[in-house]
Design a protein around this nucleic acid. Sequence first.
DNA 1: AAAATTAAGTTAAGCGCTTAACCTAATTTT
DNA 2: AAAATTAGGTTAAGCGCTTAACTTAATTTT
Lengths: 333, 333
Amino acid sequence: MKVNIYDVAKAANVSIATVSKVINNTGRIGDKTRKKVNDVIKELDYKPNLMASALMGKKTCTIGFILPDLANPFFSELARYIEDMASSFNYNVVICSTDYITEKEEMYVSLLLQKNVDGFILASGFENFDAIKKIQAMNIPIVLVARNAPGEKLNLVSINDYDAGFRATSYLIERGHQHIAIIARNIWSNRERFRGYADAMRANGLIPMDEHYYAKESTIQDGFKSLQQIMNDFPTKPTAFFACNDLIATGAIKACKTLNLSVPEDISIIGFDNSIFAQIVEPSLTTVAQPQRDIATEAVQLLMNAINGDTTHQTITLKTEIIERETVKNLTL
Amino acid sequence: MKVNIYDVAKAANVSIATVSKVINNTGRIGDKTRKKVNDVIKELDYKPNLMASALMGKKTCTIGFILPDLANPFFSELARYIEDMASSFNYNVVICSTDYITEKEEMYVSLLLQKNVDGFILASGFENFDAIKKIQAMNIPIVLVARNAPGEKLNLVSINDYDAGFRATSYLIERGHQHIAIIARNIWSNRERFRGYADAMRANGLIPMDEHYYAKESTIQDGFKSLQQIMNDFPTKPTAFFACNDLIATGAIKACKTLNLSVPEDISIIGFDNSIFAQIVEPSLTTVAQPQRDIATEAVQLLMNAINGDTTHQTITLKTEIIERETVKNLTL
DNA sequence: AAAATTAAGTTAAGCGCTTAACCTAATTTT
DNA sequence: AAAATTAGGTTAAGCGCTTAACTTAATTTT
């Protein structure tokens, strides 16, 4: 049924070694032989079994992409770019959503390792480094995305979350906001943004809010709840919110509507990611843009280099940009 | 470095056949031997190489999911459900976006076939059946999602697009709309919805619009352009639009804003999918809901059955539901 | 013309696993 | 007590490929 290298060899009247060499363009093969083999291959529609070649130490041409949640548009957009970029190298990507759950991270890593993926792009939390260590022990290349790992020997592609947090907050402060709340989640990137936020506040003599208020998850629902909770708990109500991703921002905007607060008249909101949501919500969201396409491009490129033997480790930090839309009011006017 | 079955066998003082049997729970193995082997496995942290077992005819525990565009929230949400469901069977999924381009469909199918995936979930257009035939020739199970294929021996999971189109249109007609336009794309599901739309119109003595107006793609931009074009071209302006997915609907709403038309006061819009967008846009979108979770569950379940030897072919048709939100005005009130 | 080189293949081992077929000692049956 | 069965393994072939080592014939060098 399925034609294998022996069938081709027989039909072309050569040894399987010759066929293999034709396919891989290795060794010395005469022109007529090469043509004959190629003709037979075409005729029989022979496709080498990639498992078998992988067993012999060749690449599987598959990368594992482990992310928190594929249904989050920031990540699905990123995944799409990564997929396209990988495809340009003839690579496929198997995608695994972890919901930031350590057990899932470890399980997926294990599984993909067994499947001999050629490399990993990791965009999940990986607060626990065990899984990463495991990959490294196998000498499989890794590119870490959307988080940092000071001191670790890893390829990193990320933005400067601290700086982005600082700038987002400064942006609000410059527009006259003094009571600024932040809705973040307890993950690396958000903690960095929080740090940036807190420093920006203090640098302007303002008081940052306490990190007890970390949101449980980064969903619309949690953004909704968090804003309500903060508006409820805080004696002096914030005039602005820094939402650490666009989903949270979207939820926060919804919450304002529920509370009969106008955005941006009563409450200003700045988001993060510049996923498609930012353009969709009403009012459209002022947000910190992450260059998803560049992140994807760089990450895949880095991974390919590593897969092809480059043993250096690079850290690529990409620029963020505040996209001004309609959710921030300038109080100084 | 990487521990293999020989290492385990040696350490446990048994043959590799015994180790294999312990792992696969086949054959006869004494209790002490089994324990000893299991202990060694644990101690050496041995994980069987799945490529090698796949070569011997075992499953790869990987399914290919070919879809049009992972960045489209309907599909990314679907993908997430499929991924989760597959994961519950210990399966991974490699995701491929085709943009409805036949060449990409064929290329991905070929590639995944070479990688010995155990099954396919196909949600791309596959207007050209060659790729599907290829899979069938290899005897690899397929579940077709979001389209139909009358006469073909395939597992199908879908909604009744004709009926959904009919009902969406009737919904508008019942609310007094007479000039109803449709923004669809030239793909199977949309053509069916179009048919339903046209029949509903005629059944009520109304004139359906011409199918020349198929949108090029199903993106926000295309929804935007299509609405503008229709409003521009048609002598009697429609009072309602049936957008064949939520992205198009979103674009259409944007276009209305640009044209200074109020939704739903001047223009009513009904979408399709009930992806997260429907809740986000302003005004929130009345739309035909597809049961993504059920689609995913059924599709994976069907595929697993097929992978495990079930040779029957099922067609599962799931219910759609019109979710009433804010974009349709009742003209009869 | 003999020696050396090169071109174009072939042979065979092995990647890490599964499994049918086989073996041996212990137990059961008659 | 001999024959039959069973329990608990082992042996070895083979999945489809790659590749180092080898062979042979043709070409080049000296």
